[in-house]
Each structure stands twice: as C-alpha cells, then as structure tokens.
C-alpha cells in the first residue's frame, strides 16, 4: 500500500479516457438507443401483434433474460461472422470488428430488458386513452405513436435511464473479448507495468463516480418530470 504509484495513473490518463472511456461511452450510448428502439418494437408486438408474433417476441425476451451476458457476448462474437455471411450471401464468414460485434450484442441483449420496461409502461396507461385515440379515427399504430408512447417515455424515462446506467456498467464485460474499453485499457496498462492495484482501484473509482453521479441525476429527474394529469 505504501508504494501506491499515483504517477502511473497520471501518465495513462489520456489512453484511459480518450481510448477506453470513449469506447465505453459510445457503446453505452448507441446500445441504449438501439436497445430502446428494438425493445419498444418488441413490447408493441407482444401487446398487440398476432398470436404467433407475440409468442415469438415473448420467447425472445424470456430467452435472452435467462442467459448471462457473458455467454451472450461469446455467442454473438462467434455467431455474427456467420450471420454476416448468411445475410450477404458471401462464401466465407464475414470478419466483424470488436466494436460492431459488441454493439450488436448489447443492442440485442438490452432490448429484452428495455422491452419489459416499455411493456410495463404501456400497460400502465389507462385503456381509455387508446380508445379515445381510436374513437378520433387514429389507426392503432397512430394511437400508439402519438397518444400512448409519448406518455410511456415520460413515465418510464427514469427507469430507462437507470437501466442505461446498468448497461454502462455491463459494457465492462467486453473485457472478455480483449477489447479496449475503459476497463480493458486499465487492464492493459496494469498488466504491462505490473500495476494491478493502482489501475484497478482507479478504474473502480471512475466507474463509481460516473454511476453514482448519474443515478443521483436520475433521482432529480424523477421529481421534475411528473406528467400533469
């Protein structure tokens, strides 16, 4: 403990943040957007699709939620090249970079969780709202788009953001693919210089500060955005 080397942290700040944290935040942001869009689609299909479609959506959501993220990361790491081959009709598995593979994985994985949030949100809107939309002549999709979803996003925004903080922490698991996210960057320096204590302590501190501050922000938001009814 006495020989804790602060300098190693100082010297690697640029690498940690401009390489590592940039990757982590970009992945978090894009996966959250993609996950919410796909998750919302899944929720709508489950609630208003035909019997077959909604069973498929439900099966997907329940399957993904039963699996550990680490396993899903491995699945997609090996599967995506073959999916690419199949989609493009290429004769060989397509090489996909670490970022694309991670992004696809997190969108697909988080969509299952976002879908449950959106489903709860849609179910929480009084049924008369959809009826009023239909009575005005809106189609079911228009009613969803203009009447229901705006209310759901407002009610569920804090929960969606909280899930995004979980997602931010979860992205550290791309470590298993040796990708240089924030933790990956810290780990590389730690192992190169034999400074595991310093680098992992610092990484933990940064994750804590970001997550803690963000969840405080979400609490503030919760109070601010109640829908006037």
């Amino acid at each position: 403990m006495s020989n804790f080397d602060f300098e190693i942290i100082g010297r690697s700040l640029g690498y940690l943040f401009f390489e590592g944290m940039r990757f982590t935040l970009t992945l978090t942001f894009l996966a959250a957007i993609g996950g919410v869009i796909l998750g919302t689609g899944l929720a709508i299909i489950r609630l208003s699709g035909g019997r077959v479609l909604s069973a498929v959506a439900a099966g997907y959501v329940n399957l993904v939620r039963a699996l550990p993220l680490v396993l899903v990361i491995f699945w997609f790491y090996f599967l995506v090249p073959y999916l690419g081959q199949w989609l493009t009709g290429s004769s060989r598995p397509i090489h996909v970079g670490g970022f694309a593979s991670a992004l696809i994985t997190f969108i697909v994985f988080e969509a299952a969780y976002f879908s449950e949030i959106m489903r709860a949100g849609i179910a929480s809107i009084p049924r008369g709202q959809a009826a009023a939309g239909l009575a005005l002549g809106l189609t079911p999709l228009q009613s969803m788009r203009y009447v229901i979803l705006p209310q759901v996003f407002r009610i569920m925004l804090p929960v969606l953001l909280t899930q995004t903080i979980v997602l931010f922490q979860d992205t550290s698991l791309v470590y298993v693919l040796s990708i240089t996210d924030f933790l990956g960057a810290a780990s590389k320096i730690a192992q190169r210089d034999g400074r595991l204590v310093e680098m992992y302590s610092f990484a933990a501190l940064v994750y804590f500060i970001v997550s803690f501050a963000a969840s405080r922000g979400v609490q503030r938001l919760r109070a601010l955005i109640a829908v006037p009814r």
Binding site: P126, G128, Q129, A131, A132, G133, L134, A135, L136, G137, L138, T139, Q142, Y146, V147, P150, Q151, R154, V227, P228, R229
Partner: peptide, 21 residues
C-alpha cells in the same frame, strides 16, 4: 374503420384527454 370512427364523435366518462398534450 379509422375514417368511419372519425365521423363519429365520442365523449368518454373519464374524458380521456391526452395528458402530455
């Protein structure tokens, strides 16, 4: 159906105004 409904005005017991608008 949407066109038909548009020509039938309906007023609900619980108003059902859209609270976010």
């Amino acid at each position: 159906l949407p066109r038909l409904r548009a020509r039938v005005g309906m007023v609900f017991q619980h108003f059902e105004l859209f609270p976010h608008m």
